[in-house]
Simulated assay, not measured.
Amino acid sequence: MKFSKQLHIQGLGMAMAVLMSLPATATETIKAVVIDGYPAKSMWVHEFTNFFIPEVNERLAKTGNYDIKWQESYGGSIVKPKAVLEGIKLGLGDIGIVTTIFHSSKLPSQSLAAVTPFISDDARVVAKAIDEIAKEYPTMQKEFAKQKQVYLATGVVLNTYQLYSKKPVTTASDLKGSKVAGAGTNLRYLEGIGGVAGVRGGLTDFYNMLATGLVDHAMLWPEAAKTFKIAEVAPYMTQVNFGAVNTKTVTVNERFWKKLPDEVKTVLQEVAVEYRDHLANLAMDRAQESREAYVAAGGTIVSMTPEAQKEWADSMPNLAKELAETLDKSGEPGTEIIRAYIDKLSAQGAKPVRDWTVDLN
């Protein structure tokens, strides 16, 4: 009995020693599925893997309270590029990078930059202005809330849309009788030209659309043209400078968000803003490099004169006014939002080719 009692005491001592060596609180592991329909080589996806996720992990590791086990599903493994919004809504993914240009009817206020072309080709300025509008006015967040998701931040991954063609283009009238590929609102840039057919497509489709003759031109940006080897099928880039446009927004499934601890929510929100700025900086850094790569691949850059730019801008319908009126009618401060957004760009030195506010109420 005495020997048994000694073993019992020793056992208790060892157990206490083990317990004392453990951290005060165990780390809670959270599983998160990230989705995007675009391939991993796309800049914003690549940087989500190499910037966003490591930053979140590093900050959570400082307290050790939580750890996220990430499952990254890109390139159509769960959803196609146009289905990320619906995928997050249905819970097919917990976090997603929504390409907002595909959803102008469901996310109208996300088209702010798209409906005000020819103002700024500085991705950093546009990204910050859009995100500030989203924080200052609840309109954008309400739109995502209707889709059962929480808005984190809007990203700009291009410094400016340009026109890529099979033949040289110097003025808008050169497009008459041709077909132009675009995505979402930018197809409306063609409406005032006449004799031009806009063809909707996604970035991953443009190469084949040009190669097969389905279209003669495509509107995209230099970094994407480099990534998808557009010089092979469209050897002329017209430097139109439509401007930087926000196209990527990081959102979180609403049910998933509600279950997250406050510490994790704060980290995700903070890193999303840094990811926004990181993407914008990359877009600007890579713009010139991508132009050079396009030329090296056999492409030729054609300049458009300021007069030709103004002629094209003036031919467009006032898309900004249309958006303002749409939002105003729905009870949102559309006119105020348009003015506030353009004021933010102007305050940073942007000089609009066309004054989109002139016809606003």
Results as ranks from 00 to 15, higher is better:
9 I>T: 14
67 D>W: 07
75 G>W: 02
7 L>H: 13
256 F>N: 04
45 V>C: 13
19 L>S: 10
79 V>M: 06
215 V>I: 02
292 E>R: 11
98 V>R: 06
33 V>D: 11
126 V>A: 03
119 I>K: 08
221 W>C: 07
93 G>W: 06
163 L>R: 01
145 A>M: 03
211 A>C: 05
24 A>H: 12
213 G>A: 05
169 V>L: 04
6 Q>D: 15
3 F>E: 15
125 V>K: 08
207 Y>F: 14
32 A>C: 10
38 Y>S: 14
109 S>L: 12
201 G>L: 09
134 A>F: 04
126 V>W: 03
307 E>G: 06
29 T>I: 02
255 R>C: 00
125 V>E: 10
71 Q>F: 09
133 I>F: 01
235 P>D: 12
3 F>G: 02
10 Q>C: 08
183 A>F: 06
298 G>H: 10
206 F>P: 01
116 T>I: 12
191 E>Y: 12
348 Q>M: 09
332 E>R: 11
332 E>A: 14
350 A>T: 02
143 E>Q: 13
206 F>C: 05
130 I>Q: 11
93 G>Q: 05
47 E>K: 12
169 V>T: 08
286 R>D: 14
356 W>M: 05
50 N>P: 00
204 T>Y: 10
181 A>H: 06
163 L>V: 00
151 Y>L: 07
310 K>S: 14
16 M>T: 14
340 A>H: 14
308 A>Q: 13
69 K>H: 14
53 I>T: 11
246 N>H: 11
271 V>R: 09
79 V>E: 04
152 L>E: 03
248 K>D: 13
13 G>P: 04
167 K>T: 11
111 S>T: 15
244 A>W: 02
94 D>E: 08
101 I>R: 10
354 R>W: 05
170 T>E: 15
279 L>K: 09
81 P>K: 03
167 K>A: 12
71 Q>S: 12
211 A>D: 14
280 A>G: 01
241 N>M: 00
196 V>T: 07
296 A>M: 06
259 K>T: 13
53 I>V: 15
76 G>M: 05
327 L>T: 03
353 V>Y: 02
239 Q>D: 15
214 L>H: 04
264 V>Q: 08
319 L>C: 08
343 D>W: 01
184 G>H: 07
29 T>C: 00
285 D>V: 01
238 T>F: 05
13 G>R: 13
95 I>P: 03
89 K>M: 13
25 T>W: 00
1 M>L: 06
106 K>D: 13
